[in-house]
Design a protein around this nucleic acid. Structure first.
Length: 296
DNA sequence: ATGGCTAATGATATTAGA
């Protein structure tokens, strides 16, 4: 099973690139952030192309800013839009969506930026992360879980190209890193860093000043997983090719390949037959052993 | 090859990104 996350910085501006990337990378599950579209507008642009490729769609957006989605070629059940118990600014913003995909509870997240440490958005970011931790604690007790997306936090100084550039800035503060550590304490593993402990790996490069060619980047798009998922990881990488050329997002996708669950057991998060199909097309809402064997 | 910001908007400047 291949699961990926990508902040595409406008699904409308990235329409052709997203489809090309799906055909090239062939992910089974995709978490998107910053679609910057309403639910209706997203479907208008993508429903046909994604349906033809076998993807079901769960989108949560209200138009100009934010916007998150999950696409799945397998099951896409028990969709939740928004972060339960999370703060707004001042009202709720579309920064989180969850679905159960082939036995894994998947969250696509766009954590608030924070802007500057003295901006109200910074306190909002920390409160939002605390609410996320509560959700992770509650849901990870029930089965396999992943949180993927743009966390707007560089976990360590090794995750920015020059820490001196971030003196006093958001994304690297102890409070933000503590909020991230609380997710790790709740049982999540940063599976990219676990696989590549000593490598320079970035997922975001500013559009300005040749940052990408110089590899002046940050690793802020994270893939966190409970232990039962983390131990299935075969490979994790950043698809830098998606950042090359013109008309790209300023983020690159992060891709995670998972081995089949032991004995085809996809875990207890799979809903019973009575709650199937509330959010998806097609007939297969429940994963079975044979489904698992069909996964790449 | 990867090139000196980009996208959306009640646009012609502003907000937001990080």
């Amino acid at each position: 099973m291949r699961i990926a996350t990508w902040n595409i910085n406008s699904a409308k501006a990235r329409q052709a690139r997203l489809i090309e990337w799906l055909d090239r990378a062939a992910p089974d599950v995709v978490c998107l952030q910053e679609t910057k579209l309403s639910d209706d507008a997203f479907l208008e642009l993508f429903d046909e192309d994604l349906f033809r490729r076998g993807y079901r769609i769960a989108h949560h957006g209200d138009g100009r800013w934010n916007g998150v989605a999950i696409l799945s070629r397998g099951s896409l059940d028990n969709v939740v839009r928004g972060l339960p118990g999370g703060p707004g600014f001042p009202g709720p913003e579309p920064r989180a969506i969850a679905a159960t995909c082939d036995g894994i509870r998947v969250w696509s997240l766009y954590v608030p930026n924070g802007r500057t440490v003295d901006d109200p958005h910074y306190a909002y970011k920390l409160t939002w992360l605390a609410a996320l931790r509560d959700v992770v604690v509650a849901e990870s007790a029930r089965g396999p879980l992943m949180t993927l997306g743009d966390f707007n936090i560089a976990p360590t100084d090794a995750d920015v190209w020059d820490v001196a550039q971030f003196e006093g800035a958001t994304h690297v503060t102890p409070a933000e890193r503590s909020a991230l550590a609380a997710l790790v304490d709740a049982g999540l593993t940063d599976v990219l860093r676990a696989r590549w402990p000593d490598d320079v790996v970035y997922t975001y490069w500013d559009y300005r000043q040749l940052c990408f060619p110089k590899n002046y980047g940050m690793r802020i798009d994270l893939t966190l997983a409970t232990a039962d998922v983390a131990e299935r990881v075969c490979a994790v990488w950043v698809d830098r090719a998606a950042r090359k050329g013109t008309g790209t997002s300023d983020h690159a996708p992060v891709v995670v390949d998972l081995d089949t669950a032991p004995d085809g057991d996809v875990g207890p998060m799979v809903p019973p037959p009575s709650s199937r199909g509330s959010s998806s097309r097609g007939s297969s809402g429940r994963s079975t052993s044979s489904d698992s064997l069909r996964q790449r």
